Simulated assay, not measured.
Amino acid sequence: MAGFFSKLMGKAGSATEPTPGASAPSFDTVVPGSTDPFDADLGQATEGQQVIYQVASVLMLYPDTEIQALIPELRQLAQEVGETPLVEAIDDVAHWYESAPMEDVAASYVQEYDLSRRHSFHLSYWTEGDTRRRGEALTRFKKMYRDSGMVTNLHGELPDYLPLVLEFTALVDSRAGRASLQAYRPSLELLRLALRDDNLAFHKLVECICDSLPGESPQTAQEIQKLARATPPAESVGLDPTDPRLLPLLQPAPVPSSLTEVSTRS
């Protein structure tokens, strides 16, 4: 398993060996004495969950021929760990790659995921929008990477970029990564609904991610709203206050300004 991940991402030795996770806790399970949802203890990822996170982190990147060439191996890996829904999700992405020339596939990716806010892969955007409060959320992700002791290359992305969070969860610290995914569960669920409603290829991938976390997935935006416990953002920039992407979230605890930067590899 670790050997395949190292070959896939060029991170030899960074994969962690997963252990069976804890029995499904509630959405708000946190370490005793802590109010920070990033401190939730959901257990480490199982082998199947680790595969879900790594496969999704690869397939949700900007499409190119190298990723397309990996799809048969990713499908085989999903089959080996018995993740049938993930096999189906991979097949959807494979069909998308095969539906048009690569330049057209890449252009559709840019349109749907880079230019369209409706399918943003940045977790805090769904909840904080373009508000000042978002900086605090991004800092919390940076702190998670810093606390892992690993040098994190953001590749020019914000630290809440979903493929990056998934890669960290699969290869570095599945316990911390799963806690961050669960903390931003409303974002994942809203993305899942948007992808489903627009019949896009990544829908089942995000569904697999949601299903790997504790608690049943809500079926409507109104139900997703109930997952959040904090007050709405005090300020919005360029978004209507009723926009579902401004859904109130379990707010990460503030961290010192000295932790606002994460080391990056050149």
Rank of each mutant, 00 (worst) to 15 (best):
M1Q: 01
G3Y: 07
K7P: 08
L8Q: 09
M9F: 07
M9Q: 14
K11D: 04
A12S: 07
A15F: 02
T16C: 14
T16E: 13
T19E: 14
T19L: 08
T19A: 12
P20M: 02
A22H: 15
P25S: 10
P25Y: 09
S26P: 12
T29F: 15
V31E: 15
P32K: 09
S34L: 06
S34N: 11
P37N: 08
F38L: 09
A40V: 05
A40D: 09
D41H: 11
D41F: 14
D41C: 11
L42S: 02
G48S: 15
Q49A: 00
I52Y: 00
Y53I: 03
Y53T: 04
Q54Y: 10
Q54E: 12
A56Y: 01
S57H: 00
V58R: 06
V58L: 10
L59K: 06
L59A: 01
M60E: 00
L61Q: 10
Y62V: 00
I67K: 08
I67M: 01
A69M: 03
A69N: 11
P72M: 03
E73C: 14
E73P: 10
E73D: 15
Q76M: 13
E80W: 08
G82L: 10
L86S: 11
I90R: 00
I90A: 05
I90D: 06
D91P: 06
D92Y: 11
P101D: 04
D104A: 15
D104F: 14
V105G: 06
A106E: 02
A106P: 10
A106T: 02
A107C: 01
S108C: 10
D114R: 05
S120N: 03
S120T: 12
S120Y: 00
H122D: 05
Y125F: 08
W126D: 03
T127E: 10
T127S: 13
R133M: 14
E136D: 15
A137Q: 01
K143A: 12
R146D: 09
D147V: 08
S148E: 07
G149K: 12
M150I: 15
T152C: 11
N153D: 14
L154V: 04
H155S: 09
H155Y: 14
P159W: 05
D160V: 02
L164F: 06
V165P: 07
V165N: 01
V165G: 00
L166N: 07
L166F: 01
T169S: 08
A170Y: 01
V172L: 00
V172E: 02
D173K: 05
R175C: 09
A176V: 02
G177D: 02
A183N: 08
R185L: 07
R185M: 06
L188D: 06
L190F: 03
L190M: 10
L193P: 12
L195A: 01
D197G: 02
D198V: 02
L200K: 09
L200Y: 00
L200E: 04
D211E: 10
S212N: 03
L213N: 08
G215I: 07
A221D: 13
A221Y: 09
Q222H: 12
I224G: 05
I224S: 08
Q225E: 14
L227I: 11
A228E: 14
A230M: 12
T231F: 15
P233R: 13
A234V: 13
A234T: 13
S236C: 08
T242Y: 03
P244V: 07
P244C: 10
R245D: 06
R245Q: 04
R245L: 06
L246D: 01
L250F: 13
S258G: 15
L259S: 15
L259A: 15
T260F: 15
V262E: 11
V262D: 09
S266G: 12
